[in-house]
Design a protein around this nucleic acid. Sequence first.
DNA 1: CGATAGCTGAGATTGCGTCTCAAGTCAACC
DNA 2: GGTTGACTTGAGACGCAATCTCAGCTATCG
Lengths: 152, 152
Amino acid sequence: MASTQIATPQPAEVRKQTILQRLAEHGYRLTATRAAIAAAIAARPAQFTARELVEELEPQRIGRATVFRALDLLVQIGLLERLHGDLSCHSYTYCAPEHHHHLVCTSCGGVTSVVAGTVEREIRNLARQANFRPVTHHIEIYGTCQACQATN
Amino acid sequence: MASTQIATPQPAEVRKQTILQRLAEHGYRLTATRAAIAAAIAARPAQFTARELVEELEPQRIGRATVFRALDLLVQIGLLERLHGDLSCHSYTYCAPEHHHHLVCTSCGGVTSVVAGTVEREIRNLARQANFRPVTHHIEIYGTCQACQATN
DNA sequence: CGATAGCTGAGATTGCGTCTCAAGTCAACC
DNA sequence: GGTTGACTTGAGACGCAATCTCAGCTATCG
């Protein structure tokens, strides 16, 4: 097994079903509202903000509070992750539950997840040299994805 | 030169002077208000929030807006950096302008800056494998610093 | 010293995110 | 197939950080 894996994105329908299944597994009820939220999240190509989701779902009479509750739930379950862009506070991205990092394209906004064993090892080395006991870490790499490199 | 360097903190007075000098270099005026803000920032041991700074400076009749303007300025110049804790949105930390990463102690809140050549290299490798052209990246490592390990 | 561009503070304003609570709905159990 | 109880929801109020505005002030330069 290579130390670096690039996650292949799932189609929207699969993602929606995954979200609903995971909610059920964790003992949450399957409601029409949650299905609508799951569909909206699954349909988004990459990262999105809470605000966007709220605006998209408002015409369907789904309240702000409900959207925020659902986002929190999904972050907790591990199906969404918060990203920390420098400008707007945080955005969310759908992702697999294992530990991984993000390649964020500043041109198209696309997010690719990678599992990076080598980097993990170096992080641990680094912390040890500073007598620091690492618990968790965030790595976000900003740049240009292959598709956007081609079009520019 | 080792690939990993742990930055040694400067005394507060030096930091304050550095801030004022940098502002002048960038063509900004040196005012009593900015000196007070610089002193307040320099006196803080580690990371701090905008709110803390505002509260500290309010009794001196320094307005909210002014503090935020100063923070933005210093981030732009590269003397402050925004950190992204998971809970409260962002906090600031004083830091040297070169590229580096942070070891954030979740117990005492202390921030240590490290320059990590090896990790940088692995990041580039990782991006190359994904056909991604990296421009910048953030690495934040959360855990327990040496002092806090001892007291627990 | 005088002019002016930059800086400042107070308060209004915006907007994200949270809280509350009554009403609605799912799911388990009979 | 009903009943029950706990979970879920929407609307609006709310709290709070951050931004905006604008009139007055001041550092800097000539």
